[in-house]
């Protein structure tokens, strides 16, 4: 039971980090109609900025601020130089150009920082474990990530529904020509949305890098998971991204923790371990396939988008 709660919290924390990635991707797709493979590179930029600044100044918090700033800046620069030429192109050009950006970012980072992983130390304020009701010891930092993820989800909800920028974002999703005709500077709006998505990805990179390690190529597996999240949740929907991220985080974590054990009650334990972990590693893709069969446009996607 304890183990179940602990794994559920792990799944929740994983899901929150996936949400930070997926929210940016889905906003960029919803507003600009752009598929951005380089989103994982921005995640990596955030992690490296945090590691470099935290290493130089000794302050994790400065590092975290640097991750937001560096990823947003990298996002804005890339949008101005490359991405904005791609809005009118088809998806094929977008895929290839952003794939090329990944190569540039990865090799550039390897050139600057080398191939060895960097490690971040937790700030004293958030290190250690807390005892939850029921006696479960759980790392405080992971708990903070869950809280932060929930806060950002709520903040994004307020931003999109209550602010002027949010109104423009929603208007841009609905009809970009009309928004431009009404006098909104579409080019600036696009840069802002792209930088916002990049900052969220960079923050996720710094936070996950603190739990795991900071290395070149760290963004790519997360990027593909974020795609799975978006396909499940529905492209362009931030709510869908949240629900999809939590579903994927939970399914993956709980599947890996419990599937081999459950199978071992049914079949030979050593075979159960092999088969169980193999199935657990593909469980989220099975989930995605299931959603595609029932609702090809995703849980919160609009008909006609798919």
């Amino acid at each position: 039971m304890m183990l179940l709660i602990e794994q559920a919290l792990n799944g929740l924390q994983y899901g929150m980090m996936l949400f930070l990635m997926a929210a940016g991707l889905t906003l960029v797709f919803g507003v600009m109609g752009l598929i951005n493979l380089a989103h994982g590179a921005l995640y990596m930029v955030g992690a490296f900025a945090c590691a470099a600044v935290a290493g130089a100044t000794g302050s994790f918090w400065l590092g975290l601020a640097a991750s937001l700033a560096a990823a947003a800046a990298a996002g804005a620069v890339v949008e101005l130089l490359v991405i904005r030429r791609l809005y009118a192109r088809d998806h094929l050009d977008q895929v290839l150009a952003t794939f090329a950006l990944i190569l540039v970012f990865s090799e550039g980072t390897r050139w600057l920082f080398g191939s060895f992983p960097l490690y971040l130390t937790l700030p004293p304020l958030l290190s250690g474990a807390v005892t939850l009701p029921g006696g479960l010891q759980y790392p405080l930092f992971r708990l903070a990530l869950i809280g932060l993820g929930a806060a950002i989800a709520f903040g994004l909800y307020l931003l999109i529904t209550r602010t002027r920028l949010g109104t423009r974002i929603r208007a841009g999703e609905a009809d970009r020509e009309m928004v431009a005709a009404l006098g909104v500077d579409i080019a600036r709006l696009y840069t802002a949305v792209f930088a916002l998505g990049a900052a969220l990805a960079g923050l996720a990179g710094a936070l996950v890098g603190t739990i795991q390690s900071v290395q070149v190529g760290m963004g790519e597996p997360v990027l593909i998971l974020a795609f799975v999240v978006i396909v499940i949740g529905g492209i362009g929907s931030v709510k869908g991204a949240l629900v999809g991220a939590l579903l994927v985080g939970m399914t993956d974590t709980l599947g890996k923790a419990f599937l081999p054990g459950v199978l071992a009650r049914l079949i030979d334990p050593s075979a159960a371990n092999t088969i169980g972990s193999a199935i657990a590693s593909v469980l989220i893709y099975v989930l995605m396939a299931g959603v595609l069969i029932v609702r090809p446009q995703g849980l919160y996607g609009e008909r006609g988008m798919a």
Partner: peptide
């Protein structure tokens, strides 16, 4: 069953 950017992902 999907198309466009969904198909890619």
């Amino acid at each position: 069953r999907t198309s466009g950017v969904y198909f890619i992902m």
